[in-house]
Nucleic acid binder design. Structure first.
Lengths: 205, 205, 205, 205
DNA sequence: TATGAATGAGAATTCATTCAT
DNA sequence: TATGAATGAATTCTCATTCAT
């Protein structure tokens, strides 16, 4: 049964590869690109250093891949949350809820996007600003639609989008560094939604 | 002639020290602590590597000093702007104005605070979060006062403070990366003030 | 084939570590701690510089370890030689014989102890004087016993111990720097024993 | 009065030069050649670093000069002491007395000769062994004469000379590191003389 | 003469990467 | 596939030495 065997092997390999990538995300998220060494990563994944280079070509490529993947995941989740609702208030609520969900279940994902690629190799800086730009554009589109529907006050939606993205991230970083964050999730979500609605100049019907 | 010590020699030395520190701020601001090498700094300052160590004990100490100095300057400027006015709207306007001023005249200062200290070296992480905390507390105090005076709607002022700090910074980073930023200063200031007033739930009398 | 770990790989690694340590002893013995560079050591061992740091944490730790190990070996050998006999003259003879043996088979060992740790780095100075003190004490105990048994004349045995230790070392250094030392071993041993007996005020029965 | 002026200037210059050399001896004696930096020396002498290079061509040359001068002084003093007496016992007594005198008044001189040049630049190593050789030869000549006069027992006087030189130095190092050495000078001298007479196989008339 | 700012070669150490097993 | 020993370029930092003032 060569197919099964191959399939099995493949699954195993993929499992290991995935485990190593998760380890890498954790390490990159915690230390940032430069301070994270390949040795840190393989120690976290509990494999030998040679194994790293069997699965990945090099540190930079892996980081780029992880960042891209993570960024895509985050943007898609956000997009989905926004698209799943029709009114602006509902969109914002869904988006915040989704963001906090990710942050609680995969804090490393959020931290990787926020600090992982800061101040490093030019290619990474590029990548990071690419993500920020897409994130902002997503909010910008949402705000533009809301403005058309007169759900929010007239404003420069680009700047509001920037402010929302930056504001939510700072709130999230603070929340993640809180010791008792688990018990404050709901309240934090509520606060973030209020902040978002106010900042967007939401017009209560 | 036994070498005139305390004359203009001293002035020259101070000038050079300052020039080197400015060069260091630029490099740290652009690349972050880890990616910035001492060679980068001395190249920017156009001196030999030994000269760096004549003026400063080591890379980390210099960074800490620059960060602390810059953070203090930023916080004092903000505090001054806030204290120079009485109403919340006026405080916010003054603060934004001051922030944009700094960003235009000393963009490296802003960038150093935003990206310079990201990534490991525990002492630096500590320092950076210390600054963020102070920044947020400053906004928090201002919001709390405004709330007492019923200038803004009831809210969790801590979270709003986080959101404001993060939002303004993101807007500023975007502004600084804009090619034609010079011509957009006034509009940006106006947008930021509007964003801030909305996000704070400002109650128009 | 998942890389045989605990087989002869381990043996090889141990062999290499030992080879590198021996190279290091030679270099330290010849140049002293400060003048010996890590590059000298890896050149002597014919490996790359990174290999040094794969096997040892740093130059100072390695030196301390080598010095300690060497000192312990020398002191134990001396102690054994002294304990293997009962009369003072026999003890002295055994000790000198053992010392010359070591010096002929492992000249670097002797030189490391004599010149390796001279010159600053407080920890090394400490270590070196610790060894000298133990060496002197060993002779002192032997002399004290001999005095009790009236094998030697009344004297300040501490000072005699210092003199013996220093005298033997100087004779040994001269012997080692001699071109035809191999042919003079027996005569040197005889001379050293005579010197030792005389210096100790040995009372011929 | 150009002559006086020149003479004055010269004296001043010589005084400063001498002060700097004394400072250098102290530093070299305490730290050894490598660990002693030019900055250490100028700090000890309380002058600027440039001044060092006005008076001396470089660190190595100065060390060589100091070592040579010190060695010559030590050898001459020893020679004088030995020549001032006729019998072996008297010679030994005078030599020990002179040695201890120097060690008490100028401990740095003794330490410089003992540890200053160990393990360093080949030229220095050469110089150091040159001094040891001369020192040993001086004792050797004295012993040879004593042997002719049948003041000491038959022996290999070369080896005894080595042993005496090494033994006295070790005793001296221990004495210098003693806290209350001042009060023990006389006793130490007596012990050293006894040690020397015994080690030389002195025949009491 | 005297100063000390400036230099850069060289030392210790780190770490991404390779490759024989 | 998996391992980890081995490599060496790159980094931080020191220190002897020079030179304009």
């Amino acid at each position: 049964m060569p197919y099964r065997s191959t399939e099995n092997t493949r699954r195993k390999k993929d499992a290991k590869r995935t485990a190593m990538m998760q380890a890498a995300v954790r390490v990159f998220a915690q230390k940032g690109y430069h301070a994270a060494t390949v040795r840190d990563i393989v120690a976290e994944a509990d494999v030998a250093i040679g194994t790293f280079y069997f699965y990945f070509p090099d540190k930079e490529t892996l980081f780029n891949h992880l960042f891209e993947e993570t960024a895509t995941f985050m943007l898609q989740t956000l997009e989905q949350a926004l698209n799943s609702r029709t009114t602006f208030a509902a969109k914002l609520e869904a988006a915040v809820q989704a963001y906090v969900n990710i942050a609680f279940y995969e804090p490393a994902v959020v931290q990787l996007l926020l600090i992982g690629g800061v101040g490093s190799v030019p290619a990474l800086v590029e990548r990071r600003s690419g993500y920020r730009e897409k994130l902002i554009r997503t909010w910008q589109r949402t705000l533009a639609t809301a403005l058309e529907h007169q759900e929010i006050m007239p404003q420069n939606v680009r700047r509001t989008a920037e402010g929302l993205a930056g504001g939510f991230d700072e709130i999230m970083l603070n929340l993640l560094s809180l010791p008792g964050k688990e018990h404050e999730g709901q309240e934090a979500i509520s606060d973030m939604i209020q902040f978002g609605l106010r900042a967007s100049g939401y017009i209560y019907a």
